[in-house]
Simulated assay, not measured.
Amino acid sequence: MSDSLRVLGNYRASITIGERVAKSALDNKHQFWALHVVATSKQYMGDYDEAISLFIQSQAFANELYLSFSYQHLGKLYVEQGRLSEAEALFNDALNIRQKYDKPLLKASTLKALRGLEALRKHNTRNANES
């Protein structure tokens, strides 16, 4: 439900429900996803420091495949902050996990993120050269 509210743009309700789930989660899977959704909602609200903290906290509850989600989403946040080298490292970590588990759709998503990062770098280099 928390993730659905996030998708609908109701970030505050998503955070409230996600935080409740995180406090009462009985297993690592639910703890991970609750923290992950809250982190994503915080990111969309522009609360980057809190989002980073929550993404990192969620990783303690992640299995290896879930970790790839955390890496990719944290990488996207770093792109938003202009921290491109850190983003690239996280995207590559996510890609390695997704290749290991033979997850073609997830792998394609990560490759798309890496291509976007490369395009952003080329655009930034081009703009810097034109100045």
Score class of each variant (00 low, 15 high):
residue 1 M to C: 12
residue 1 M to L: 14
residue 1 M to S: 12
residue 2 S to E: 09
residue 2 S to T: 11
residue 3 D to R: 05
residue 3 D to I: 02
residue 3 D to G: 02
residue 6 R to C: 01
residue 6 R to T: 00
residue 6 R to G: 06
residue 8 L to E: 14
residue 9 G to P: 03
residue 9 G to E: 06
residue 10 N to T: 06
residue 11 Y to W: 02
residue 12 R to Q: 10
residue 13 A to T: 10
residue 13 A to Q: 13
residue 14 S to F: 10
residue 15 I to L: 00
residue 16 T to Y: 05
residue 18 G to R: 00
residue 18 G to L: 02
residue 19 E to Y: 01
residue 21 V to L: 14
residue 22 A to Y: 11
residue 24 S to E: 15
residue 24 S to R: 12
residue 25 A to N: 06
residue 26 L to T: 13
residue 27 D to C: 11
residue 27 D to T: 06
residue 28 N to G: 00
residue 29 K to G: 03
residue 30 H to L: 10
residue 30 H to V: 09
residue 30 H to E: 12
residue 31 Q to F: 13
residue 33 W to E: 00
residue 37 V to I: 09
residue 40 T to M: 15
residue 40 T to V: 13
residue 41 S to L: 05
residue 41 S to T: 01
residue 42 K to V: 02
residue 44 Y to D: 11
residue 44 Y to K: 12
residue 49 D to W: 08
residue 50 E to L: 14
residue 52 I to S: 01
residue 53 S to W: 09
residue 55 F to I: 05
residue 56 I to A: 01
residue 57 Q to C: 03
residue 58 S to C: 03
residue 59 Q to D: 14
residue 60 A to Y: 10
residue 60 A to R: 06
residue 61 F to N: 05
residue 61 F to R: 05
residue 62 A to G: 00
residue 62 A to D: 08
residue 63 N to H: 01
residue 64 E to R: 12
residue 64 E to W: 09
residue 66 Y to L: 15
residue 68 S to F: 12
residue 69 F to S: 11
residue 70 S to M: 00
residue 71 Y to N: 04
residue 72 Q to N: 14
residue 73 H to D: 08
residue 74 L to D: 08
residue 74 L to Y: 03
residue 75 G to S: 02
residue 81 Q to R: 08
residue 83 R to F: 10
residue 84 L to T: 05
residue 84 L to R: 00
residue 85 S to I: 12
residue 85 S to F: 15
residue 87 A to D: 04
residue 89 A to T: 14
residue 91 F to P: 01
residue 91 F to V: 09
residue 91 F to R: 02
residue 93 D to Y: 09
residue 93 D to S: 13
residue 94 A to Y: 00
residue 95 L to E: 06
residue 96 N to E: 11
residue 97 I to C: 08
residue 99 Q to N: 13
residue 99 Q to I: 14
residue 100 K to I: 02
residue 100 K to Q: 03
residue 102 D to Y: 09
residue 104 P to K: 03
residue 105 L to S: 09
residue 105 L to N: 12
residue 106 L to A: 11
residue 107 K to L: 08
residue 107 K to I: 15
residue 107 K to N: 07
residue 108 A to W: 05
residue 111 L to Q: 08
residue 111 L to I: 10
residue 111 L to Y: 04
residue 113 A to W: 07
residue 114 L to V: 04
residue 116 G to D: 05
residue 116 G to V: 05
residue 116 G to R: 14
residue 117 L to A: 03
residue 117 L to G: 00
residue 118 E to M: 01
residue 119 A to M: 07
residue 121 R to A: 02
residue 121 R to F: 07
residue 121 R to D: 02
residue 123 H to R: 15
residue 124 N to R: 14
residue 124 N to C: 04
residue 126 R to F: 11
residue 127 N to M: 15
residue 128 A to M: 14
residue 128 A to L: 15
residue 128 A to S: 12
residue 129 N to Y: 05
residue 129 N to R: 11
residue 131 S to R: 15
